[in-house]
């Protein structure tokens, strides 16, 4: 068995910036005669090489628009790469846009079953764990309420509680996942620490260097879609701050 959970070489992802009407049927017919007359290509990722060992936690840093989320989406198989090769050994769990797994018009319990299966649990497992999930998030009194009736904080509690009880093999995560209250945020990051200790492979995209330094053993830096630096969290963070003229609060 390979020691690498994720291997990617020369990964590239190209988009075409389009006008609003570009994806219409008549416009597509026009493109048969005049290919992409009003579309500009833009590389969100280009020539990115990445190898993540099993059990390793890698941080991905970079300014807005650097390609961090695009990299995670390509690694998760959500977007097809425009060039390069990629191999993932294991089941991917995605902690990006967790709130999209919810149907707000349904009740909390209905959403728990839906989210549970989306996150990778069978219905039987969700049924078995539902009491534990509810207790973890402390939302028992809202179990049968409409999801939309909950406050934003409680909504995130429900979502994060469900996500953390799913089986996780390789975790791809955007740090915005815990836009919730302090209690659930603390429980979430404590669980992340457990996952680290259990040897879960983690790729975390974040702007927050303290998080990266706490949870990651290695960091890669992206800028304008390209890999510009890689190394230990402390050195990579220092280089990032110097490159972008940011006061990182170094000792």
């Amino acid at each position: 068995m390979s020691e690498y959970a994720i291997e990617a070489s020369n990964l590239g992802k190209r988009y075409y910036l389009q006008t609003r009407s570009s994806r219409t049927f008549p416009r597509r017919v026009l493109y048969w005669f005049w290919p992409r007359v009003d579309e500009r290509p833009i590389w969100a990722l280009r020539h990115v090489d990445l190898a993540v060992k099993r059990g390793e936690a890698v941080g991905v840093i970079g300014p807005n628009g650097a390609g961090k989320t695009t990299l995670l989406q390509v690694l998760a198989g959500l977007l097809a790469p425009s060039e390069g090769k990629m191999r993932v050994r294991g089941r991917i769990s995605s902690f990006m846009g967790l709130a999209s797994a919810v149907y707000p018009e349904l009740t909390v319990e209905e959403n728990l079953f839906l989210m549970g299966t989306i996150f990778g649990m069978t219905r039987a497992v969700v049924k078995k764990k539902i009491a534990e999930i509810v207790e973890f998030g402390d939302f028992g009194k809202y179990r049968h309420a409409l999801f939309t009736q909950l406050s934003a904080g409680y909504q995130m509690r429900v979502i994060v509680s469900a996500a953390l009880h799913a089986p996780i093999d390789i975790l791809l995560m955007d740090e915005m996942v815990t836009a919730g209250d302090a209690i659930i945020s603390e429980r979430f990051w404590a669980k992340m620490l457990d996952l680290r200790k259990q040897g879960t492979t983690i790729v975390l995209a974040s702007h927050a260097m303290p998080l990266i330094e706490a949870y990651c053993s290695r960091v890669i830096e992206l800028n304008r879609g390209r890999l510009v630096n890689a190394g230990k969290p402390a050195t990579a963070a220092r280089a990032y701050y110097e490159r972008h003229g940011v006061d990182g609060g170094a000792d």
Binding site: Q73, A76, G77, L78, L79, I92, S94, M96, G97, L98, A99, S100, A101, I118, F119
Partner: peptide
């Protein structure tokens, strides 16, 4: 679309 672009399934 949000579910499609955030969860591998």
């Amino acid at each position: 679309a949000a579910l499609l672009t955030n969860f591998p399934m």
